[in-house]
């Protein structure tokens, strides 16, 4: 396992917004076929990290390799082709509210291939079924859906093109615990079915243990711990321990004061 090229390899990733150093040398390997959860406090730069890997934010320094290829050095056409291999579930869904649900789900398909709208809708309804939504939902508008349904539609849109890599940004935030468990279940099912490599961001510990094989903690702009997701609750790392157990006292608070 150790010799294989990781699906995603980050080295020395740095990104600052103005004077604020959000990422300060992130090193991370995500082996192929692994579901990695990244935990970390609000505002610790988890979303920025994912957006860097997606190419939505240009990092100041560092390398991002996917399948061993340096993404930022790739020519534009190959970068675009690589994008088609990545699905993303955004933190707040980011559904296109000017398009009906089915067009949201089929959007990537219609953008990449010249698919007739009828066929695209049929395909979208098939994907909606995979996330437990009836075909009739396809005709609704995003604003007509509950939060849980919006997450499902966002998930459907992310998996529609059967991507090799999936990103989930706080998939259960804002949902009740039961709906959160349902969405986690769907995520695990989808990732298994597609055989994808997944990176999920969360600060919901129950969710982290349900989704993840491996886990890493982002703090102070760096990965301060990584290991099996099963070890999250007894990692032996004081930063992780404080975070996963939700303690008020500990090194993280001291870091905030300092």
């Amino acid at each position: 396992m150790s010799g294989a090229t990781p699906k995603i390899r980050l080295r020395g990733l740095r990104k600052a917004f103005g004077a604020k150093q959000v990422l300060d040398g992130v090193d991370l390997d995500v082996p192929s076929g692994t579901s990695m959860v990244v935990i970390g406090g609000s505002g610790s730069g988890k979303s920025v990290l994912i957006k860097c890997i997606l190419g939505l934010i240009e990092p100041d320094e560092g390398t991002i390799e996917i399948d061993g290829r340096d993404v930022m050095r790739l020519p534009r056409t190959e970068r675009t082709a690589l994008r088609a291999e990545i699905g993303m579930l955004f933190q707040n869904g980011a559904l296109f509210d000017s398009l009906p649900v089915w067009e949201n789900v089929a959007f990537g398909l219609m953008a990449r291939r010249n698919v007739a709208r009828g066929a695209a809708r049929t395909h979208a309804e098939g994907v909606l079924a995979q996330v437990g939504l009836a075909a009739s939902v396809g005709g609704l508008w995003p604003a007509e859906l509950s939060g849980g349904m919006q997450k499902r539609v966002g998930l459907a849109r992310a998996i529609a093109a059967q991507p090799a890599i999936l990103f989930f940004d706080e998939p259960t935030t804002g949902l009740d615990p039961i709906m959160g468990a349902v969405i986690d279940g769907l995520i695990v099912d989808c990732v298994k079915r597609l055989g994808s490599t997944a990176v999920a961001i969360t600060h919901d510990m129950a969710s982290a243990r349900r989704i993840g094989d491996a886990a890493a903690m982002l703090h102070g702009g760096r990965i301060v711990w990584s290991g099996p997701a099963a070890r999250l609750m007894d990692s032996g790392n004081p930063l992780v321990d404080q975070f996963t157990h939700g303690r008020r006292e500990g090194p993280i608070q001291m870091a905030l004061r300092g």
């Binding site: 993303m88 933190q91 980011a94 296109f96 959007f107 990537g108």
Partner: peptide
């Protein structure tokens, strides 16, 4: 609104 709700980023991830 599309910008602040990440819809523009979502377009990019969907090859658009």
């Amino acid at each position: 609104t599309m910008r602040v709700t990440d819809q523009i980023d979502a377009l990019t991830t969907l090859s658009t």
